[in-house]
Design a protein around this nucleic acid. Structure first.
Length: 624
RNA sequence: GCCGGCGUAGCUCAGCUGGUUAGAGCGGCGGUCUCAUAAGCCGCAGGUCGAAGGUUCGAGUCCUUCCGCCGGCACCA
């Protein structure tokens, strides 16, 4: 039997499952069902990524061991998928000992084949991203997430990623479908063409991780660890390589560059395809914990049902692009397509068979026009499905529903019944019934539970069963507040469970850890002064830089280059009092020598906010 | 700054290699049947197709420039 193995990412357990995780997993599960319908023996794997300093610290914050902490969060994921009725075939945790062995095996193979070397590193390190920031200094914000970088000196194992540039480019060229959609492929292509740097794959600053073989202190870098779950999840089953890695676009590089390189180094088979979907936005805004606009799936599915969510996500969002999520849109889509569309068609079709034919499904030839529509719809929908164009596939299927509604209006079976035109009546009823069967077949992977209900009502033996609305109409005014209420409750429950980790206001992953303690003597080394911005202009060639002249009471105004252009228009800064670090070593930025640094606050890569005073302060005043 | 994508009816979007009056769904308005979940069906929406040039007999559809938004890279508090 032909096999198909696909994966979702393994989710990081620094947060409880939310709708973003759900989106990916539902999409994967739909693909799994589609492939099963095609006759494949399918395995869908997901799991949780549980190592790293962030988890170590998060566990500590709630007075738990890392293992106890991850047990809880990982359990939330298993529970979530069960609640949603998702058929998950393998669930791999990175804390699984069998997985540990697989990671070590991968490492040893890479090492044996000469793609790993040991080297030492001193410099800035971002705890949150578990990445070295070669270009930055400790104390500066992380280039990726904006959290303060810490100083580390580590001896590390490095992976010779640089050796794989050509092989990767060849892979992308020979398998144009390897990275999908096209736009993501181009991004990766551009990135790899730009040259690859060797990648540190071990950490000594962390203890919560998989030990590097033959080493005392080294633990594997998160991605070396995590990506390997795709192999370890089906270890010994002969299923690797995966046919599809379904991921979100934010982790594309790890999957499309690092992962194939690791596998090439180990001489293990490469996955067939990586598909990066877009983000689910909430009312056109990026969802995030800090914004507090992150939704959970259960409050939605409790009120409107799992299939409503499944249908919405796949119908409303163009798969691959970013999509908008809102409860309003969800309810609107439900009422229009599921209640008025499929639900109503089912209801009227089966009711007529009940009323006019005593519930016995007529067995006569189907109208030619209907047969043609069924064939065309099936062919088109399957073509769309094959390309993961879920929204188009569903649109196509729903066009058939419209066609049938119009057919019923034209044929008016109720009049045929009155006039006792039994032959025509049978033809029409049977045609509609058969078309409904086709719709069920096509829609089943997306809304399986509902289709099962419809099929039960359609009857298995030519006898229509009991009829109850499969998609009762929703009243937005009633249902949306219900979902919002449950959302609050669910959020509170998760917070209680995970401690403050998941709470927006005290999110340890958003608030950077404190820097090491210093003395007053250390502090006075930093000369902070009040300055008045004399002029400000954009630095050409840089998006984020402003070229400022700041008066701090010296003979000449200081030249300061500040990366605040995204947050402040130059003209709004003139005459504004700011705080600057006056004794910072000068540094050249974009060819301009910056003498000092503007003090600004920011959180999780958010925009910088300039420090300011509520009362009047003289220029040149020192802060202490 | 470089690379890529996008900007079409109130909303979400189709419009392939240029060719009659620019389309669909949703919402809204009007009409109508009654099998059906106050569902369905029919009709209406008059939108400078981001802006300005250009190529062409003819351009949302090709070219140039500009504006706006998004993403990647560079850069960065």
């Amino acid at each position: 039997m032909k096999q198909f193995y696909l994966t979702t990412p393994i989710y990081y357990v620094n947060a409880a499952p939310h709708i973003g995780h759900t989106y990916t997993t539902i999409a994967a599960e739909v693909i799994a069902r589609l492939k099963r319908a095609e006759g494949y023996e399918v395995v869908l794997a997901t799991g949780t990524d549980e190592h790293g300093q962030k988890i170590e610290r998060a566990a500590k914050a709630v007075n738990q061991s890392p293992q106890a902490f991850t047990d809880v969060v990982s359990g939330e994921f298993t529970k979530q998928w069960a609640e949603l009725g998702l058929q998950i075939d393998r669930f791999k945790r990175t804390t699984d000992p069998a997985h540990h062995r697989k990671v070590q095996e991968l490492f040893l193979r890479c090492q044996e084949r000469g793609f790993v070397y040991k080297s030492s590193y001193t410099g800035a390190y971002c705890v949150s991203d578990e990445l070295y920031a070669n270009e930055n200094k400790p104390g500066e914000p992380c280039p990726i997430c904006g959290r303060i970088l810490e100083e580390v000196t580590e001896e590390n194992y490095f992976f010779k990623l640089s050796a794989f540039q050509d092989r990767l480019l060849k892979l992308y060229e020979e398998q144009p479908d390897f990275i999908q959609p096209e736009i993501r492929r181009n991004e990766v292509l551009a990135f790899v063409r730009g040259g690859l740097q060797d990648l540190s794959i071990s950490r000594t600053s962390i203890t919560w991780g998989i030990p590097v073989p033959n080493e005392e202190k080294h633990v594997f870098y998160v991605w070396f660890d995590a990506l390997t779950t795709y192999v370890s999840a089906v270890d010994g089953e002969g299923r690797w390589p995966a046919d599809l890695h379904l991921i979100g676009k934010e982790i594309l590089r790890f999957h499309a560059v690092f992962w194939p390189a690791f596998l090439m180094a180990a001489d293990w088979p490469l996955p067939k395809q990586i598909f990066a979907h877009g983000w689910l936005l909430f009312e056109n805004d990026k969802m995030s914990k800090t914004k507090g606009n992150l939704l959970r799936a259960t409050p939605i599915t409790t009120v409107v049902g799992v299939d409503a969510l499944r249908y919405f996500l796949l119908r409303e969002v163009v798969f691959g692009s970013d999509g908008n999520f809102s409860l309003d849109a969800l309810v609107a889509r439900y009422n229009a397509d599921l209640a008025n569309g499929l639900g109503n068609l089912t209801s009227r079709t089966l009711t007529m068979i009940k009323q006019y034919r005593a519930g016995l499904v007529p067995t006569v030839p189907v109208l030619e026009s209907v047969a043609a529509q069924i064939a065309a719809t099936t062919q088109q929908a399957q073509a769309h499905y094959a390309k993961f164009e879920f929204s188009k596939a569903l649109e196509t299927i729903w066009a058939l529903i419209g066609f049938l509604d119009r057919l019923i209006m034209e044929e008016k079976p109720w009049e045929l019944a009155k006039r006792s035109e039994h032959e025509r009546l049978d033809t029409v009823l049977c045609s509609t019934y058969r078309a409904l069967e086709a719709i069920c077949n096509l829609a089943h992977p997306v809304i399986p539970a509902s289709i099962d209900k419809i099929r039960a009502q359609m009857g298995a033996d030519g006898q229509v069963g009991d009829l109850t609305p499969v998609f009762p109409r929703l009243d937005a005014k009633l249902v949306i507040p219900q979902m919002q209420e449950l959302e609050q409750a669910e959020l509170a429950r998760q917070n209680a469970l995970l401690g403050k980790v998941a709470a927006p206001e005290a999110d340890v992953s958003a608030v950077s850890p404190l820097s090491p303690e210093i003395t007053i003597d250390d502090f006075v080394k930093v000369d902070l002064r009040v300055g008045l911005v004399i002029s400000a202009e954009a630095v050409k060639g840089a998006d984020k830089l402003l070229h400022l002249k700041v008066d701090i009471g010296e003979a000449e105004p200081r030249t300061i280059v500040a990366g605040i252009a995204k947050a402040y228009a130059p003209e709004t800064l003139v005459n504004r009092k700011v705080v600057i670090v006056a004794n910072l070593a000068p540094r050249k930025l974009r060819g301009i020598e910056s003498k000092g640094m503007i003090v600004a606050a920011s959180l999780e890569g958010g925009p910088p906010v300039l420090a300011a005073f509520l009362e009047e302060v003289p220029v040149g005043a020192r802060l202490k």
